[in-house]
């Protein structure tokens, strides 16, 4: 069975139902709107470019076992397995990847969300606050006194 999805900029995509159902939101929508499947499902926060990528991801992972989200955070902390395909998939520019994380979040595609978070974590890992500020173009809004205080408060992390 096929379902149609509409991106925020009006582009329509037709995908297999089981592929679309990797998105928790779409799965719930399909249950609610069972009778009304002629209309495409509107995705107000997801642009066509991102939606195409999300669908590409779901197509590849359609047969994966679902992630159990009820597990406690200790077990979530262990790194998820990335296969070759996933690694290739994340070779895009940062902006695109961040857009994808937002899309995965608004559509609730859990495995893609985890993949994206890991990608984002890899970027900021080992970066100094100054480098992060530079990358995200953030102004330092701490006073020098506050910075000193934070430095003092954070000492335990360096033990």
């Amino acid at each position: 069975m096929k379902v149609t999805l509409e991106s925020s900029d009006g582009q329509v995509f037709t995908v297999d139902k089981e592929v679309a159902e990797l998105s928790v939101i779409i799965k719930e929508m399909l249950v609610i709107e069972q009778a009304n499947q002629d209309h495409p499902i509107p995705l107000l926060n997801v642009g066509a470019v991102e939606l195409a990528k999300v669908i590409e991801y779901c197509e590849h992972h359609r047969n994966d076992p679902t992630i159990d989200d009820d597990e406690d955070y200790d077990s979530r902390k262990k790194p998820i397995e990335m296969d070759d395909w996933d690694k290739q998939f994340t070779i895009v520019n940062k902006e695109m990847m961040f857009e994808l994380i937002l899309a995965a979040n608004s559509m609730q595609v859990k495995p893609l969300l985890h993949l994206g978070c890991r990608y984002a974590a890899d970027i900021v890992k080992r970066m100094s606050p100054t480098e992060i500020r530079d990358l995200f173009q953030i102004d330092d809004d701490f006073t020098p006194e506050e910075q000193d205080k934070i430095e003092w408060e954070k000492q335990w992390t360096k033990l």
Partner: peptide, 19 residues
């Protein structure tokens, strides 16, 4: 979610970026 993949040292640096 991002924090899950970061060590405490990295988290501390992130918390130092801005308010």
């Amino acid at each position: 979610g991002i924090g899950e993949y970061l060590e405490q040292v990295d988290l501390a640096r992130c918390a130092q970026v801005c308010k």
